[in-house]
Structure formats: structure tokens, C-alpha cells
Design a protein around this nucleic acid. Sequence first.
DNA 1: AAGGCGTGGAA
DNA 2: TTTCCAAGCCT
Length: 298
Amino acid sequence: MTLAHEAITWYDANARDLPWRQPDSTPWGVLVSEVMLQQTPVVRVEPAWRSWMTRWPEPAALAEDPPSEAIRMWGRLGYPRRAMRLHACAVAIVERHGGRVPSDLDELLALPGVGTYTGRAVATFAYGQRHPVVDTNVRRVVCRAVEGKPDAGPATTTADLVAMEALLPPDAPTAARASIAFMELGAIVCTARSPKCVDCPFHDVCAWRLTGLPLPEGPSRKPQRYAGTDRQVRGLLLEVLRHTSGPVPRQRLDMVWQDEVQRARALAGLVEDGLIETLGADDFVLAGDAPQGEIQTL
DNA sequence: AAGGCGTGGAA
DNA sequence: TTTCCAAGCCT
């Protein structure tokens, strides 16, 4: 019994019932879920995914609405640039692929917001192709079970793909199930902080467990702060824009953050990223909400 | 190729 | 309270 087959057997009995995994889910639904799941937990994605798919059941529907609507629908999932890119992705799918999510990996990777993980996930989970699919869960499971290390280091794309490739069964449908099974295992059993080894199908063969669950060696890299950063200020600014339909005067935005320098920097950043647009000298709107011909540049 | 980029919940 | 983490992407 290989690791892949052990994982698949475990997955068949323990997988969560998520809407984008239903038999009737579309490649578009899979793509939307993958983008939403980039750095956002499943529990917060699920209701947002349902709303999104109800409103925009296919790429063409989203492409017809302005980016501002995507940003509003994104709500508080975080990293709203993803909403922008998903909108741009829908436009590209309409323009380049006749409104159908492409199945070719290189065409997927060429879409905005679709990187190594997401492209392979869509090709594999939506189209049943055989590709290694490596996310943070897979990296953790493989490095523990195979290498015996407590935590995966920084992502090293090529090496990670090669390592997973070696574990994949030869036929595509089984390989796809193996990938989703490894991911699920990392998500609910082989978790970062409190792995539930008693529930793990790799219990008896896991190199990490067999060597006594050694702790991480050096000091962990310190996570990025959030409070007081430009990111927080951007979030506050965007929160105002999201809940306003018309132009928002600069004066209103001035209220969200004391530090004028930082506030201006955050605002300029949002414009730079294309999330918002300036209207005249002192009004702002979400991207795409400006009346024709009234967009000003800084 | 490190670091920027949101948000909320669990420990 | 603070820290850490959650199916990354882009530059």
C-alpha cells in the first residue's frame, strides 16, 4: 500500500463535504474556490463562495459587471486584490477562451491571480489531469511523513513539485484523488500546531512520528505584524469604499487613520493597485464605479 | 527572492 | 494579550 492509496482510502471516509467538491460543480466554481482559499480558511470561504456563484454562475456574468462589484462581494475575505484579479480573470477567460475556463495548464497559469498552486489545482480537480498539486498542507504532510521534519521550510516550487510527483500514482484520476487527499490530510489531521497523529493513516509509517516527533530546530521566522501597518490602513480605507455607492470625499477617508503620511501612502497604494480610482482631486470610488470620462490620474 | 498584501479565530 | 496560522500571488 502506497502513501497515496492510504491517503485516498482515508479521504473517502473522512473528507469534508464542501460545495465546490460536488459532482455538479463547474471548473469556474473550482477556480473561484481556489482563489478564495488562498490564505483564507474554509469556514469563511464557504458562504462567500455560495453567494459569489449564485450571482456569477459563469465567468461571462462576472466579466459584465465592474470590478467594484467583485470587490464588494468579496466582503471581508481579505487580500481584496484577489477579487480584482478574479474579475480580470473572468474578463480574460471571456476574451481568450470564449467564456470557458481553460483546461490547459499553461493557459491557466497565464490568467491573472493564477499561480503554480491554483493553476495545477484547477487542471487537476476540475479537469482530472495528472499534475503534482502542492500547497502548504501537502508540503507539511510530505516533509513530516517522508522526510521526518516537523515543518516544511520556505516553498521551493520545483523541488516541491518533484517530491510530490514521486508520490503520485501513474493514472490521472487516481493521482488527482491522491492530491486532494494529501491536502485534506494536512488540513484536518496533520495540522501545523496540533497534529492528530492517532487519526492519521500514515501513523505507522510517518518518518516524523517514528523518530519521536522532534520539535522544530531554530527560532521560527517571525510573522509579519499587522496592527499599524499600511495593510491595516488600506483595509480601513477600502471598508469605507465598499459600503458607499457614490464618490467618497477625501475628508471622509481622513477619519479612518490619524497619521496623514501613512494614510496618504495607503490611499496611493490602493490607486496604484487599481482597487480604487480618483474622481477629481478629492473624491474616490471603487474601481469601475467612476462615471465615464471622469477618472483622474494622480 | 524576501516582503507586501487583509482578516478573523484559536491557542 | 500576543502570537500564529489559514488550499498564495506578485514583484
